[in-house]
């Protein structure tokens, strides 16, 4: 029983990382209709930069925050390239993000090399209800939960959040009421970058990062996001947590080699089922 509780909490911690990546994908897709294949790179850039800053002697907190803000800036840059030109279709933007995601490999290898990196998180072992797990997993949850609550409040209660939601609902109507849809799209990319970056800095102490870690994060994040058709953040959160727990349980009770396959099978199953109903990725309203 304590094994199970340990796996569950560990799985939630890993799933929180997927959920953050997924919610970044959802934030960008809702507002711009673009599936951002560079989403995993934000996590890698933030994690790598944080490891460098910590190695240079900068304090925890400051290093992680700098990593997340740099990822937000990277998100803004990806957005500028992908949707900056008026009239770029979401399909074209998707290919641009795919290209930028691969281009990021080159930059990451030049700056940080191709070896795995990590940095220390919360040290020690925590005991919860008889279950032993790395204490850092509790920090991941302690940060992720308030972030999701803050995002919910941001979208529901602030003018900017409402304007983002209006773009998500109908970009044509949003323009008519005076909302700068392009600027909101760039803001969504920056937000997506920050969320991806947060996933990177939170999970690196328990899962070291390499330049191509973005694939795992992206596949898992996308699998979680597609559950809600890339438009429902709450479903993406639930999907990410579920995926993390499922993978940890499978790894804990046997096949540790099959973690990524779990996400891929889930993602394909969801997409096939949804495609037969109404298209996995909904078309925008006009």
């Amino acid at each position: 029983m304590s094994d199970f509780l340990g796996y569950l909490l560990t799985g939630l911690g890993i799933g929180a990382g997927y959920a953050l990546v997924a919610s970044g994908l959802v934030a960008i897709h809702r507002v711009t209709r673009v599936v951002n294949f560079a989403q995993g790179a934000f996590a890698v850039v933030a994690a790598m930069l944080t490891s460098s800053l910590l190695a240079a002697g900068l304090p925890h907190g400051f290093a992680e925050l700098t990593g997340v803000l740099t990822a937000a800036l990277a998100g803004l840059l990806v957005g500028l390239v992908a949707i900056g030109r008026p009239g770029t279709t979401p399909g074209t933007s998707l290919i641009i993000t795919l290209g930028l995601g691969i281009f990021a490999y080159a930059i990451e290898i030049v700056i940080w090399g191709d070896q795995p990196r990590s940095f220390a998180g919360v040290p020690g072992v925590a005991v919860v209800g008889g279950a032993r797990l790395q204490a850092h997993y509790l920090l991941i949850l302690a940060v992720t939960v308030p972030v999701f609550l803050a995002m919910a409040a941001f979208f529901a209660r602030t003018d900017v959040g409402k304007a983002l939601s209006a773009c998500a609902s109908n970009p044509y109507a949003a323009l008519v009421v005076g909302i700068d849809v392009r600027r909101m799209g760039l803001l969504a990319f920056a937000l997506g970058g920050a969320l991806g970056g947060l996933a990177g800095v939170l999970t690196t102490p328990v899962q070291q990062v390499t330049f191509d870690s973005d694939v795992t994060l992206l596949v898992n994040g996308f699998a979680a996001a597609i559950l809600g058709g890339l438009t429902r953040p709450v479903v993406a959160l639930g999907g990410g947590l579920l995926l993390g727990v499922a993978q940890t349980l499978i790894a804990g009770y046997g096949g540790s080699a099959y973690q990524l396959e779990v996400a891929l099978v889930l993602m394909l199953a969801v997409m096939i089922v949804q495609a037969s109903r109404r298209g996995a990725v909904p078309e925008p309203a006009r």
Binding site: R157, V160, A163, A166, V177
Partner: peptide, 30 residues
Amino acid sequence: AARIFPGMTTLENVMAGAHATTHAGFLAAA
């Protein structure tokens, strides 16, 4: 053509029309 905001109520749709006239800043809203 009906260029409305699906997923919002009728009142919320109409309130969105005031976006062009809002002045209170981001922090005031937050």
